[in-house]
């Protein structure tokens, strides 16, 4: 078994970019402490590569050619595309894992059609997690995007299959691999409603996710998600894919809806790796 870690975390740009605007600094710092714990947990596994399953935010693809799933197979990735001062993350190059990533693509595409890219650009969706999980950018990263922005969106049943395919691909390799899924739960980012969070909806979803309740997780309907969790809720795809890859139950290590300046319910969790 080469998958050594599976977890989830939030990625909203405010987490780094608006840290100084937080009123509740104790909650913010507790969130950051959970992210640091997650970094240490990944480090302790001896992971040799980190797969980041994120949401496409128009950093790599547009509606002229939008893949449902894509893996970054380049030897390096660039980011962030956003203004560095806005995100409070300096522009940099992140090491990739081209050989491993290409093997993963070959395996995944046996069951799920995936695109691949050697010219990956990272936006906040990947840079914010990396800022906390590999701040020195010394761990090879394989970025993965799921289209959560430009409908039509890939169905959740397919997302689950994608997560399972990633898991199978990892298990076929000798390298120790960590996977994190990063997306928002309920949120209305980049709208005047930024900061709105449906905490009850978040907690219900997270409970189902931690319990690996596949039937409930795959029963969400985009129209209902949009109404109750905003367009940001479409990003549950990244979290469901991580759960499907892990197969084991989860431990919700941190959640708060008390940082609305971050525009999302801030979340950290880890899954057991089960066969």
């Amino acid at each position: 078994m080469s998958l050594v870690y599976a977890g989830i975390l939030s990625h909203a740009p405010g987490i780094t970019g608006r840290a100084h605007l937080v009123d509740n600094e104790a909650v913010r710092d507790a969130f950051y402490a959970s992210l640091e714990k997650q970094r240490l947990e990944i480090e302790a596994t001896g992971a040799e590569a980190l797969i980041v399953i994120a949401a496409e935010h128009f950093a790599n693809f547009f509606m002229d050619n939008m893949p449902a799933y894509c893996l970054g197979i380049g030897d390096k990735h660039k980011g962030p595309i956003e203004d560095s001062e806005w995100l409070k993350i300096a522009k940099t190059e992140i090491p990739g894992a081209p050989d491993l990533a290409t093997r993963l693509v070959n395996s995944v595409m046996q069951t799920v059609d995936v695109a691949y890219s050697e010219e990956w650009q990272c936006d906040h969706g990947i840079m914010v997690p990396l800022n906390f999980l590999t701040p020195s950018y010394d761990l090879p990263v394989i970025p993965v995007n799921i289209n959560c922005q430009g409908p039509p969106l890939t169905p959740l049943s397919r997302v689950w299959q994608f997560g399972e395919a990633l898991r199978k691909a990892c298990d076929e390799e000798a390298e120790k691999i960590a996977i994190v899924g990063t997306g928002g739960i309920s949120h209305w980012p980049a709208t005047p409603d930024s900061g709105k969070i449906n905490e009850a909806w978040d907690r219900s979803f997270l409970d189902q996710l931690m319990q690996q309740d596949k039937d409930k997780l795959l029963s969400y309907i985009d129209e209902e998600v949009y109404a109750q969790a905003g367009q940001g809720g479409f990003e549950i795809r990244t979290l469901i894919a991580a759960a499907a890859a892990a197969k084991g139950k989860g431990d919700l290590q941190f959640y708060t809806a008390e940082l609305p300046i971050f525009a999302v319910g801030c979340t950290v969790a880890r899954f057991d790796i089960s066969v």
Partner: peptide
């Protein structure tokens, strides 16, 4: 898919201009 649904309500915290930031 990015319509305003909150009626213009402020969901985040106090604007920094009100806090001298």
């Amino acid at each position: 898919i990015y319509a305003m649904t909150g009626g213009g309500k402020l969901f985040a915290q106090t604007p920094p201009s009100d806090k001298g930031e």
